[in-house]
Design a protein around this nucleic acid. Structure first.
Lengths: 185, 185
DNA sequence: ATTAAAACTGACTAATCAGTCAATGGTATA
DNA sequence: TATACCATTGACTGATTAGTCAGTTTTAAT
């Protein structure tokens, strides 16, 4: 594994445990088993490290989930696939989940940054289509997206809090149906 | 206004703008117009300041909202009253909203801390009653509470993002109905 | 008026941290 | 072999910060 990746993985673990400012760059480098200087070679500032990590997580979520959506699926099926993939991904990558949660409520976060990413763009396109076709209620696509995202987060947090795994697909599926019903026409 | 209150208000503003660790205690004291030392007289450590602020916000939310629930109201009416009060409170107290958002995703936060508070306790009792009476779906009360809270947050964020105020009670009411429908039997 | 306790001040410090830099090692190309 | 260019190191620094403390002022009780 190259040092850049090592740094990102270690930083994610430490950030999710101790927060952005609770984690010194020197510590990230030490626990990643690389020198202090190399961190600033790859990420000129701590802020840029954090921003790079955000895109790293979204990229991996995109790769993990979008491939699972099969062609010819209905809209509901597609969104369920993305939903389930997101829940799985967040359960299996606890540090990514915690990192994103902290990032999105931190002063680093801007809506514009998020909109740049293809994962968000894809979701919004899908939802837009759903609104046009009259499958969703007539409310802004962004609100539907945020609402679904919030329910995914709630689901993941709940499953974690109760030490559940994804054997409980049925439970997770029920939660999806609830969220869907509230947004569908 | 006493200095303790001044400190809490100033800290909340600075924290919501620059984050917990982006804000120096010395700066809080300076902008509150008090000495550096007095901050540590009231709050021996920065961590305790942050924790005290959490309880301050929850207390004020409790005082603001619970009084509005009138006796003899149905369960749905009661919960709608609390919902609307929470949305109003968060819109009118932007710094409190941002502070809580950051706090709940920070390493300071623990579920146990939250459960100690009477606001959360009251909400859970109400939901428990609703489950017993068969008005809610058969899922854990905590999940219903977290789900509603997440929807309140989403609502507030959306209204703020679009510079809406609570003239749009109808819109907010629609969002409540959506959330309610997904949780009610 | 006296006393004691509490509120308050602000200069100070020990520790920490983000970022620098001069030097070294490795690798590829000509 | 010589040259050039990254990757890498780790000791170092200037700036910042949470928390201290010795002393002063205010408040309240007897």
């Amino acid at each position: 594994m190259d040092k850049r990746t090592k740094l990102i993985i270690t930083a994610k673990r430490l950030f999710s445990e101790h927060g952005f400012y609770g984690t010194a760059t020197a510590r990230i480098a030490r626990e990643a088993g690389v020198s202090n200087g190399i961190l600033f070679h790859y990420f000129p500032t701590k802020d840029l490290l954090i921003k790079a990590m955000f895109f790293d997580v979204k990229d991996r979520l995109f790769d993990y989930s979008v491939g699972q959506v099969y062609k010819g699926a209905t809209l509901k099926e597609s969104i369920y696939t993305l939903w389930l993939a997101a829940v799985e991904f967040n359960l299996e990558n606890a540090n990514d989940f915690e990192f994103i949660r902290q990032f999105e409520t931190s002063p680093f976060y801007r809506t514009e940054t998020e909109l740049e990413h293809r994962y968000v763009q894809l979701c919004l396109e899908l939802i837009d289509k759903g609104i046009e076709e009259g499958q969703f209620k007539q409310i802004p696509a962004m609100l539907i997206f945020k609402s679904i995202s919030a329910q995914v987060e709630t689901t993941v947090r709940f499953l974690k809090m109760n030490n559940m795994v994804l054997d409980d697909v049925e439970f997770t599926h029920r939660l999806f149906e609830m969220a869907w019903d509230s947004l569908a026409k």
